[in-house]
Deep mutational scan, measured.
Amino acid sequence: TTKIQIRLADGSRLIQRFNSTHRILDVRNFIVQSRPEFAALDFILVTSFPNKELTDESLTLLEADILNTVLLQQ
């Protein structure tokens, strides 16, 4: 498993454990389930350093190389 910290656009944080085989789409779905107010918003996930937009949501967390990292919601 891996721990992902997500810094949300409103300044708050979410921390969740995922399997390395989960997909970026699963992280997006977790955000929307945790904070339904973001469901209607068009947002992207970005790595904190170096900044990289995670546009291919079909990638696993392992394939995207974002295990144990911080993601930013923009």
Rank of each mutant, 00 (worst) to 15 (best):
T1I: 08
T1D: 13
T1F: 15
T2G: 09
K3M: 12
K3D: 10
K3H: 09
K3R: 11
Q5P: 05
R7H: 05
L8Y: 08
A9Y: 10
A9G: 00
A9P: 11
D10V: 03
D10E: 07
G11F: 11
G11H: 12
S12H: 02
S12E: 06
S12Y: 02
S12L: 06
R13H: 13
R13Q: 12
R13T: 14
R13P: 03
I15M: 12
I15W: 06
I15L: 02
Q16S: 12
Q16N: 08
Q16L: 04
Q16R: 10
R17C: 11
R17E: 13
R17A: 11
R17L: 06
S20Q: 11
S20I: 13
T21L: 05
T21K: 09
H22K: 05
R23A: 05
R23S: 05
I24S: 01
V27W: 07
V27S: 04
R28D: 04
R28L: 01
N29Q: 10
N29M: 05
N29W: 06
F30K: 03
F30T: 00
F30P: 00
F30A: 10
F30D: 10
I31V: 04
I31C: 03
I31R: 06
V32G: 06
V32L: 11
Q33S: 12
Q33V: 02
Q33F: 09
Q33A: 11
Q33D: 09
Q33R: 10
Q33N: 15
S34Y: 09
S34W: 07
R35S: 02
R35W: 04
R35M: 00
R35H: 11
R35E: 01
R35I: 03
R35D: 01
P36Y: 02
E37M: 03
E37T: 06
E37F: 05
E37R: 02
F38T: 02
F38Y: 14
F38G: 06
A39S: 08
A39Q: 14
A40R: 11
L41I: 14
L41W: 10
D42F: 04
D42L: 07
D42S: 08
D42Y: 01
D42E: 05
F43T: 03
I44A: 07
I44E: 07
I44T: 11
I44D: 09
L45Y: 07
L45S: 02
L45G: 01
V46R: 10
V46K: 12
V46Q: 01
T47I: 14
T47N: 14
T47Q: 13
T47L: 04
T47R: 14
T47G: 07
S48G: 12
F49S: 14
F49H: 13
F49W: 13
F49T: 13
F49Q: 14
F49N: 15
P50V: 01
P50F: 03
P50L: 09
P50C: 01
N51I: 09
N51G: 10
N51P: 13
N51W: 13
N51D: 11
K52L: 03
L54D: 01
L54V: 11
L54H: 06
L54R: 03
L54K: 11
T55I: 11
T55M: 08
T55F: 05
E57C: 11
E57A: 07
E57P: 00
E57G: 00
S58W: 12
S58M: 07
L59V: 10
L59P: 05
L59Q: 11
T60C: 10
L61V: 03
L61E: 09
L62Y: 12
L62S: 13
E63P: 01
A64L: 09
D65H: 04
D65E: 08
I66P: 00
I66A: 10
L67G: 15
L67M: 15
N68F: 01
N68W: 01
T69E: 12
V70F: 03
L71T: 13
L71E: 15
L71I: 14
L71Q: 13
L71G: 05
L71V: 12
L71K: 08
L72Y: 15
Q73T: 08
Q73N: 04
Q73C: 10
Q73D: 09
Q74A: 12
Q74H: 13
Q74P: 04
Q74L: 01
Q74K: 12
